[in-house]
Design a protein around this nucleic acid. Structure first.
Length: 257
DNA sequence: ATGGTTGTATAACAA
């Protein structure tokens, strides 16, 4: 089973790149974040024509997540399903081919002095509770998406410069570690312990991709039954260097499943 | 020296 995750920064703007990439790479599951479109305006038929089922949780203009899958999705969850929580479209989950798939767009946090940063920390705590209430770490489960946290010094191109800022803050790292401690493995890091691999390069930095001024903030986490059968995990930097790219690129993991 | 880009509700925005 081949599983990919991609922050598209608008699924409509990314449609040509996406369709070409899917035709070439044929993932079984593709999680998208920042689709930026309401479900009834999602370009569904383009993906259905390629043989994918769609599980959508979108909203107008911002956020939005989607799961494309060869297998039929069941047990679909959209958001925390909690009236006390905002309905911003950042989480969609489904069971596909016997695996629980959870796709999230974790809040960016804007800046550490903003209300949005407080929201990011609370969102991570709420997600931790969501996981523990609904699932067990010995069942096959994948959590993937734009996590918006570079969790270790080698996950960003200049850790001392960014440490304490949004995306590389100890309070974010603490909350992520509490989630991961439940029983998750960062499969990219398990296969590639060395530095220099990133999934996001800011549009605004001149030659940022060529100079590799990046962040590894898009992750695929697996519970042990799946981490044990993960044969490889790769970052496709070419998709960041293609025409009209997102500022993120695609991470793919292969499982003998 | 605090620049630069992209997508979108075209903004006193969000990323």
């Amino acid at each position: 089973m081949k599983v990919s995750t991609y922050n598209v920064a608008s699924v409509r703007a990314r449609l040509p790149l996406l369709l070409e990439w899917i035709a070439e790479n044929e993932p079984d599951i593709l999680s998208l974040q920042e689709t930026k479109v309401e479900d009834d305006k999602f370009p569904a038929s383009d993906f259905e024509d390629l043989g994918y089922h769609l599980t959508l949780h979108g909203q107008k203009s911002w956020n939005g997540v989607a799961i494309l899958s060869r297998g039929v999705p069941t047990k679909v969850i959209r958001g925390f399903e909690d009236d006390l929580w905002p309905s911003d479209a950042r989480l969609v989950a489904a069971e596909i081919d016997g695996v629980q798939i959870i796709n999230t767009y974790v809040p960016n946090g804007s800046s550490v002095t903003s209300d949005k940063f407080v929201y990011k920390l609370r969102w991570l705590e709420r997600f931790n509770r969501f996981l523990r209430e609904r699932f067990l770490p010995d069942q096959p489960l994948l959590w993937m998406g734009d996590i918006n946290i570079a969790p270790t010094p080698i996950d960003v191109y200049n850790s001392p410069r960014f440490y304490g800022g949004v995306g590389h803050h100890p309070e974010e790292m603490l909350r992520l570690s509490r989630i991961v401690e439940w029983g998750l493995t960062d499969v990219f890091r398990e296969h590639h312990p060395e530095k220099g691999f990133y999934t996001f390069w800011d549009f605004v930095l001149p030659k940022g991709v060529e100079r590799n001024l990046g962040w590894r903030i898009d992750h695929i986490y697996a519970t042990r039954p799946l981490a044990d059968v993960c044969s490889e995990c790769v970052i496709d930097k070419d998709a960041r260097q293609a025409e009209k790219p997102s500022d993120h690129t695609i991470v793919t993991a292969d499982f003998d499943w």
